[in-house]
Amino acid sequence: MATEPINTELAGTCVNEFGSAIGMPQLCGEWFGNQIFWLVVALVAIYFILSRVALPRIGSVLAERQGTITNDIAAAEDLKVKATQAEAAYDKALVDARAEAQRIVAAAKADIQADLDKAIAKADAEIAAKSAESEKAISEIRAGALQNVEEVAKDTALAIVEAMGSTADAKSVASAVDAQMKG
């Protein structure tokens, strides 16, 4: 830095004739005014750049980003709620469909049961009618047989009595046979 020699009168009290510093250049009062003046200029320039342009701009960008993030998060939560609602609706539909299916199955079962019961009752009635008829026929047959037995017994008794050589009127024989058969 200090290679080119400068004139002593230009160098002043802070720099020697070889251009080297005498003591600390920081303490050279001759240069204070210059440094302070340009420092104030620089600081004022930076202050106006910052306060007029840079800081409001960066502040608005940051605010805008914050807003965008907040909006996106809100939208995401909205969508999440919607998804949950859709899931709930789907579940509900599934449960409804199951219940409906069960209801249909139960109804079909009831129908079949009713038909079945009807058919069974009808069959029972038919069976009962048939057996009553048979009962009647059997009792008729039985009554007929008893009467035949009576007549046969009376005829036989009359014939036996005649064969024994005695006469007997048919009425008394018949009443005797009746009495015997009742006893």
Binding site: I6, C14, V15, A21, P25, W31, G33, N34, F37, W38
Partner: peptide, 23 residues
């Protein structure tokens, strides 16, 4: 010459450093 780097001098040409000089 560790302190020479701190010498304030005119940026354009030589001369005295006054308050408005561009150094």
């Amino acid at each position: 010459h560790p302190m020479d780097q701190f010498i304030v001098k005119p940026f354009f040409g030589d001369g005295a450093v006054s308050w408005y000089t561009i150094t």
